[in-house]
């Protein structure tokens, strides 16, 4: 395994004068499943957008699937689900199917056309998220959870090797959320998709993520969840009590399953 999914090396991002991310470094090996957590304004979304090239870092280097980011063009190998549902226009008259199809564009050359194989891929993604029955519905007419699933289908339809998800579960009801995380686990385990998942739900993170990256403008912790509970840096940062709360709940849930 010489090629990492992602290498972040000394990356600093500034917004005007203040540093939003300062000198971040970490490496993600292929097949990892990372929960990216941290308080509001800790730079989680900024980090993901920087990885995708939507924000230019003022310093540092990013390597995606073995290629320097500036030279990286194989965006079809990456799936992305942005944070807010509101980033798209709710009046937009596209069907779920048309929205999912957009996820296939990255791999296409001019002039971009849809082929039979694409239709099969779309059907597969729809099936995986259990939204085949609403594929001809307008995206704007769906519930938040259905919309979210459609957007996830868009992110995974190109069978990416690296999946970046920014709080994908917030709009989902508990039952759908369970299903959704099962899908992600499947993708990760069966298809070896590397996943980086931003979430607020620290308590449940150990249920699905293999590793955890705690971010607060810099990397506070990066590693397996069990190490999180034993890490003196984390104790320093959180205080013993909070750390205990997080880890205790985790252990309880683990014990149940």
């Amino acid at each position: 395994m010489s090629v990492t999914s992602l290498t972040i090396d000394q990356v600093t991002v500034k917004y005007q004068v203040s540093e939003v991310l300062s000198s971040i470094s970490f490496t993600v090996p292929p097949g990892d499943y990372i929960g990216l957590v941290g308080p509001n304004g800790s730079g989680k979304t900024t980090l993901v957008r920087t990885i995708l090239g939507l924000i230019k870092p003022s310093q540092g280097e990013i390597t995606i699937l073995g290629t320097r980011q500036e030279k990286f063009t194989a965006w079809q190998r990456i799936g992305y689900l942005p944070q807010k549902l509101v980033s798209f226009n709710p009046l937009f008259p596209a069907t779920v199917r048309e929205v999912v199809a957009l996820g296939l564009l990255a791999g296409k050359k001019f002039p971009k056309r849809m082929y039979r194989t694409d239709e099969i891929a779309i059907d597969k993604a729809l099936a995986m998220l259990e939204i085949r029955n609403i594929k001809n519905k307008l995206i704007g007419e769906l519930s938040g959870g259905q919309q979210q699933r459609a957007l996830v289908a868009r992110a995974i339809v190109g069978e990416p090797e690296l999946l970046l998800l920014d709080e994908p579960a917030t709009a989902l009801d508990p039952e759908t959320r369970e299903k959704f995380f099962t899908v992600l686990k499947e993708l990760n385990e069966k298809r070896k998709v590397t996943i980086i998942l931003i979430t607020h739900d620290i308590g449940n993170i150990g249920k699905y993520a293999v590793k955890m990256l705690y971010l607060d403008k810099k990397v506070i912790f990066y590693g397996g969840f069990d190490n999180f509970c034993a890490s003196p840096e984390v104790t320093d940062y959180f205080g013993e009590y909070t750390q205990h709360l997080i880890c205790h709940r985790h252990n309880v849930e683990k014990g149940k399953s």
Partner: peptide
Amino acid sequence: VALFYQDLVAVTFDEECAQAEGI
């Protein structure tokens, strides 16, 4: 418009995602 149809749809739908998809 027909030649760039897919790109136009993607950008009109969600500029952020379109950009992340390399458009």
